[in-house]
Amino acid sequence: MSSILIVDDEPQILEILSSYLRKDGYHVLTASEGGEALEIAETYPLALIILDLMLPDRTGEDVCREIRKTSRVPILMLTAKSGEADRIRGLEIGADDYLVKPFSPRELVARVRAILRRMGDYQSLSDLIEMGELTVSLGEKRILLRGKPVETTPNEFRLLATLVRYPGRTWTRDELVEEVLGIDFFGSDRTIDTHIKNLRQKIEDDPRQPVFIKTVYGLGYRFDNPDKSRG
């Protein structure tokens, strides 16, 4: 049974969401403050965290940053801010998806199912892909650059895994949204741009002149194998 942590300071929201998720077969833990959430995240093996941005002791962004220092657990943010800049900022600090208040509990359950389904996409794969100094293990969900681990969010890993499996192929943003985020993703296709930016910061020596992830202007993105380009 997958364990899900809900972090929100409104008791009614905790009660309603817990009820719906338990009916859907999940084990649910709850926290009303950021500090309490961090303690639970360090103690329990979680499949997903549902994190409200407005908490009494600290912001949801701060909690997300702390979790991302040690964990790649998927994070679904709950926010009353519907602006694109706010959503992009959440993705940049490590959130995997966002849901704008008010929302229906059924919509949240659907999002949870979609995120966990995407998390399992590469579970049965054991392929080890090596591209220059970059190694991606699809089965273990690990990325190594010059032998050192690269920490990514689940969405960033799925995006890179999609690109490296088909080097040289140009993907449109819409195609990457469907492949990485799922056909039920409700946000902007520019979300992909944010994930690409984050990945370049982590795997490229110079993100402004990328070797691996190239922009195909007017179309989308492709992954280049530096070994082939040198050969």
Rank of each mutant, 00 (worst) to 15 (best):
M1S: 12
I6Y: 07
I6K: 09
D9W: 02
S19W: 13
Y20L: 05
G25K: 12
H27L: 13
A31R: 04
E33Y: 14
L38Q: 03
L38G: 03
I40V: 14
E42N: 14
I50R: 06
L51E: 01
G60M: 08
E61T: 14
R68G: 12
S71P: 07
I75E: 07
A80V: 14
S82V: 13
G83R: 15
E84P: 06
G90Y: 01
D96P: 06
Y98T: 09
V100Y: 06
K101N: 10
L108W: 02
A114S: 14
I115A: 05
M119E: 14
G120E: 13
S124M: 08
E133S: 15
L134S: 06
I143E: 06
R146L: 07
G147W: 00
G147D: 03
P154V: 02
L159H: 02
A161P: 00
R165Y: 00
T170P: 00
R173V: 05
D174Q: 13
L176N: 03
V177T: 05
E179Y: 09
V180P: 02
D184W: 05
F186P: 05
G187Y: 12
T194K: 14
D206Q: 11
V211T: 15
Y221V: 00
N225H: 12
K228R: 15
R230M: 13
R230H: 12
